[in-house]
Design a protein around this nucleic acid. Structure first.
Length: 105
DNA sequence: AAGGTGACCGGCC
DNA sequence: TGGCCGGCCACCT
């Protein structure tokens, strides 16, 4: 099995620390494809099968939980984030810029 | 093999 | 921030 684009995205997603969030664009940028953030979203969809990919810590550029509809129920993503101490208001991360993290290794 | 699709982003108003 | 639009690119059928 060669390492696919999806795997790379999953690796980066796993690096997001507890209590912090990142964006699709940040991940895409780190992969050298800043304009292909859409593919990152697609990759996250595939990550749904995996258990060690914190997809709930990945939001869009304005801190909106754009992927919540892909989680079970309607507020699982929000619950997971609040469980990490992240405040959610109207489907978006409060103090997003402060919690934003992109120090990928 | 070609076309459709998408958990997005940046620019503009 | 919000709405609209064009671009982008790997994956699936």
């Amino acid at each position: 099995m060669e390492k696919s684009f999806f795997d790379s995205v999953h690796d980066l997603a796993r690096q997001i620390p507890y209590g912090r969030v990142s964006t699709y664009g940040a991940i895409a940028k780190h992969l050298g494809m800043a304009r292909s953030a859409r593919m990152v979203g697609w990759a996250m969809n595939a990550s749904h099968n995996l258990e060690d990919v914190p997809a709930h810590r990945v939001v869009n550029r304005v801190g909106l939980l754009s992927g919540k509809h892909h989680f079970e129920g309607t507020n699982l993503m929000q619950q997971l984030l609040e469980n990490e101490g992240i405040k959610i208001k109207n489907n978006q991360v409060v103090d997003f810029e402060q919690l934003f993290w992109e120090e990928f290794q």
